[in-house]
Design a protein around this nucleic acid. Structure first.
Length: 879
RNA sequence: GGGCGCUUAGCUCAGUUGGCUAGAGCAUCUCGUUUACACCGAGAGGGUCGGGGGUUCGAGUCCCUCAGCGCCCACCA
């Protein structure tokens, strides 16, 4: 293969991925420490979004790094049926077809959704490949695979037997549009303006009234008590009495309960146990009846009375207020801001409805989790999230796992007419008969998180046979599913396996648009990772999205960082092309013969034994005398070595942005700009080859396609880059490396002076007693483009502004004078400007009367100019 | 109501346990057709690290406080 003149990622990426996949490189190696990551399963029904792009960039970089380091890596793919999420999409589709869920049985709907999803599936997998994810596709798990369902069932059964799962009737968060209940965590609370109404409830004995404050007058038909603060002096004498419930003929008791805040509203609360979570608890405490007056359709039921039945909540509220007013029972109203529960998909207000569901008793599970976290069994990145999770566990309430949607894992429970529930996994049967009793299937499905919460030990098959890949090395996922997913995996992991499911948790924040706004379809600011890849290449995307990003924070996506990534790829492409050219030209042998080149690693020249790494076997056998002033070789070996050790540290701490920046700097500013430039003079081809190999290996985790393509194209490399060994230390002489650093400063300073010379002159460089310059005349000349570098006992002209160095640019008196004059002129001009500013600032009139910002700005300008002045003066004294 | 996070160059952001003249990319300005690369090379400008106070030999980094922005949790009838 040959290097094309230009870097065009789209031409090789798919082929390279296929090469890896067919080679078996994605499978865990036989040898090495287990290192496993499970890709958070993307929604099978959708396309990947930018967050997935970030996930893959992070996880695949970790996997590739650990593969190179010699670990036995296992990167596990999967897809999520995403119960409710997908169901919403499917139901919309149904509606668009003029169809409805109510026209079909559960089995039909399940099959229809399956087919619907099947059409989309595969998209996501192709996109993961485009991102370069080195996933073991043979280990692919779908969240509705039999093994997932089996595990969900055995866990459910075990929890049932352990009294950790129970059937209970409680107020649940019910979406009238989607016709399903939600877990607490799925509820979207939103601050809203509402009205607090004061309504008079006449005392049953006819002596006065009690005024209750409520935002939900329409639920009053379900009131079974009114409550006051037990310490509220105003109401002491009526606790235990009865009030008449307006618009009905019922009488309800006045109870005292601590939950009432006497300072809020009138200090009297209506208690509606069937339609409010708090009231439900109150009702339990006080043994109150629970009357449901709102149905699952979001309309009032017969229990609300004939006048109100079938009205929507809004209609009912209006009518109740009107009717109360007619009876002169409305005592006041007040606008308040309060938080209202919404469906996170359709934004409907969620109704608390009394409903029988399956609940997980979370307290014992959460306690175990808290213990494990307190013992630091899991490391969090960012670290602050640990306490956040602990706090979540502390207040966690029982978890409703029943969903009234067909798209999911059927709950393996059957109920007899006498209310007896039994566990059975024959969920494809509408009913079963056992010992002559008929049991009917629970039509509900599990909350998606009930099964995906068990993902780590399901995917690694740890329950069947203890796996060295469990616990996972790290769980990398979006910070916003910390509670929904990560917390649950910890609870389940401890429950089923006795160990935490992963050693580290790395959370990435939301990827925002370029302006720092949340991406959303409605705003039209969604950035599609696949489009970015098409434009700049997969590697550029990965580098770009990892740059300038730290754990846990919501941060903007910056296309300019992708551009920088693309530019780096292009740079490395050309570096490789150039080195290959030199190898092809056989410059190396020729150079050795002419005594221009040192074909050995720097350390070998001094008789130290070389450390052999990677390929290029021809290097070590040849011996040749150390010939010349080639200090850049020691220096680049030192820099590459430093880069490698730093990378080890940074990747170990999940500091990807810094790792990428380090590689960028090393490859571009060090390797290309200095070493490669110097090698145009001193061609040490074997070293060029060796160092290029190291660079390719080190960049591979972040830019896999590019580096592998180069590896496959170079004439001397063998096998696959993806399975090479992480570089070993390169030998070098630290003193020599340090001297090169000084040389770099000299060259840069000379360049600076040349640029500011009047008339764009190109003078010679003269030097006196300076061995460093003396030894590097050719290189200095080449890199500064002066016509010549000449030793001179009495050098003169313009002195280079470096202390203790006898280096001069050979310019005539006139030019020097001109240059100095220029400097002095600049100093004068600047001095005048500074004076003006100072006078202005000293003027009390100006200080007092001018706008403050302007005065501040003046001050700022002054300081800037003073700094510049100092620099110019320094230069003048030195030359 | 409770909690978390952010505020550093024009823009988007790095900056681990406090330590040399605070960094990157992109953008800007000047110069450059040196045969790897103009997706390039060389040089340069630009920041009182949100405000105020404190601890320290030393603070972008720790503490207090104020302001702005963002997020999460919550039994705000």
């Amino acid at each position: 293969m040959k290097f094309s003149k230009t870097y065009e990622p789209n031409q090789f990426e798919p082929d390279i991925y296929a090469l890896w996949e067919s080679s078996g490189a994605f499978r865990p190696a036989e040898q090495g420490n287990p290192y496993s990551i499970v890709l958070p399963p993307p929604n099978a029904n959708g396309n990947l979004h930018i967050g997935h792009g970030l996930t893959v960039a992070v996880e695949d970089s970790l996997i590739r790094y650990h593969r190179l380091v010699g670990d036995s890596t296992w990167f596990l793919p999967g897809a999520d049926h995403a119960g409710f999420e997908t169901w919403v999409v499917f139901e919309k589709y149904l509606e668009s077809q003029g169809d409805s869920r109510f026209n079909h049985s559960r089995e039909e709907l399940y099959q229809m959704t399956w087919d619907f999803v099947a059409e989309q599936r595969g998209n996501m997998e192709l996109q993961l490949r485009a991102l370069g994810a080195s996933l073991d596709w043979s280990a692919f798990t779908f969240t509705l695979d039999p093994k997932v369902i089996d595990t969900a069932y055995t866990t459910f059964k075990q929890m049932w037997d352990d009294n950790l799962v129970y059937r209970g009737e409680k107020t649940v968060n019910f979406c009238p549009k989607h016709q399903t209940a939600f877990a607490d965590i799925e509820v979207a609370h939103k601050e809203e303006q509402g009205t607090l109404y004061d309504i008079a409830y006449p005392l049953a004995d006819g002596h006065g009234e009690l005024v209750v404050s409520t935002t939900r007058p329409e639920t009053m038909f379900g009131d079974t008590a009114v409550a006051v603060d037990p310490d509220d002096k105003r109401y002491q004498n009526i606790i235990g009495k009865y009030v008449k419930l307006p618009l009905t003929d019922r009488e309800i008791p006045v109870i005292a309960d601590d939950f009432v805040d006497e300072a809020f509203g009138t200090g009297v609360v209506k208690v509606t146990p069937a339609h409010d979570h708090i009231d439900f608890e109150v009702g339990k405490r006080h043994n109150l009846p629970m009357i449901s007056v709102i149905g699952e359709d979001g309309k009032l039921t017969e229990a609300a009375g004939a006048d109100y039945a079938a009205l929507t909540i809004e209609q009912a509220r209006e009518k109740v207020l009107k009717d109360l007013k007619a009876q002169d029972l409305l005592r006041g109203r007040k606008e308040i801001t309060h938080s209202v529960a919404h469906c996170y998909k359709c934004n409907s207000i969620l109704e608390p409805l009394l409903k029988e569901q399956w609940f997980v008793k979370t307290e014992p599970l959460a306690a175990k989790a808290i213990e494990a976290l307190r013992e630091n069994q899991i490391k969090f990145y960012p670290a602050s999230k640990k306490q956040v999770v602990i706090n979540y566990f502390k207040q966690l309430k029982d978890w409703n796992i029943s969903r009234q949607i067909p798209w999911g894992i059927p709950i393996p429970a059957f109920k007899a007419n006498d209310g007896q529930w039994i566990f059975d996994t024959n969920t494809d049967q509408p009913f079963i008969i056992k010992d002559g009793v008929t049991y009917y299937r629970d039509e509900d499905t599990f909350d998606t998180w009930f099964s995906s919460g068990q993902w780590p030990y399901i995917t690694t098959n740890h329950l069947e046979q203890p796996s060295p890949y469990y616990p996972l090395a790290v769980m990398e996922t979006a910070a916003d599913i910390l509670f929904a997913w990560v917390a649950r995996m910890i609870m389940f992991g401890l429950y089923r396996t006795g160990t935490v499911p992963f050693k580290d948790v790395y959370l990435h924040g939301l990827v925002l648009d370029e302006k720092g706004q949340k991406m959303s379809k409605s705003k039209g600011n969604v950035i599609n990772p696949i489009e970015i890849i098409g434009k700049y290449g997969s590697d550029a995307f990965r580098i770009g999205i990892l740059s300038s990003r730290s754990a846990g924070l919501p941060q903007a996506f910056s296309e300019s960082k992708v551009v920088a990534g693309r530019n780096l790829c292009n740079k490395l492409w050309n570096i490789s092309r150039f080195i290959q050219q030199m190898v092809d030209e056989g410059d190396f042998k020729e150079a050795v013969e002419e005594g221009r080149a040192a074909p050995l690693l720097p350390a070998e020249r001094e008789g130290r034994s070389p450390v052999k790494t990677g390929a290029s076997p021809e290097v070590s056998s040849e011996k040749s005398p150390f010939t010349t002033i080639n200090m850049g070789e020691d220096w680049i070996c030192r820099e590459l070595d430093h880069c490698k050790t730093e990378l080890d540290k940074l990747i170990g701490k999940y500091r990807f942005a810094e790792a990428v920046e380090l590689l960028y700097d090393t490859i571009w500013n060090k390797y290309a700009d200095w070493f490669l430039e110097s090698q145009k003079i001193y061609k040490n081809t074997p070293l060029l080859q060796k160092t290029l190999e190291h660079i390719l290996i080190m960049l591979h985790p972040f830019a896999p396609f590019l580096t592998e393509t180069i590896w496959q194209t170079l004439s001397w490399t063998t096998d696959l880059l993806i399975t090479q060994k992480w570089p070993a230390k390169l030998p070098y002489d630290p003193m020599t490396a340090e001297q090169f650093e000084t040389l770099m400063i000299i060259i840069s300073t000379v360049r600076g002076h040349l640029q500011s010379l009047p008339g764009g002159q190109k003078p010679n460089l003269l030097f006196g007693n300076d061995s460093l310059v003396n030894d590097n005349q050719v290189l200095i000349q080449f890199l500064t483009h002066v016509p010549a570098v000449i030793p001179d006992d009495t050098p003169q002209g313009m002195r280079i502004a470096l202390p203790n160095r006898e280096i001069y640019l050979d310019i005539d008196e006139q030019t020097l004078k001109e240059y100095k004059q220029n400097l002095e002129n600049n100093i004068l001009k600047l001095g005048a400007e500074i004076n003006t500013l100072e006078t202005r600032l000293r003027n009390p009139n100006y200080r007092d009367k001018a706008p403050k910002e302007l005065v501040e700005e003046t001050q700022k300008h002054l300081e800037q100019k003073q700094t510049t002045m100092q620099r110019l003066k320094n230069e003048l004294t030195l030359i």
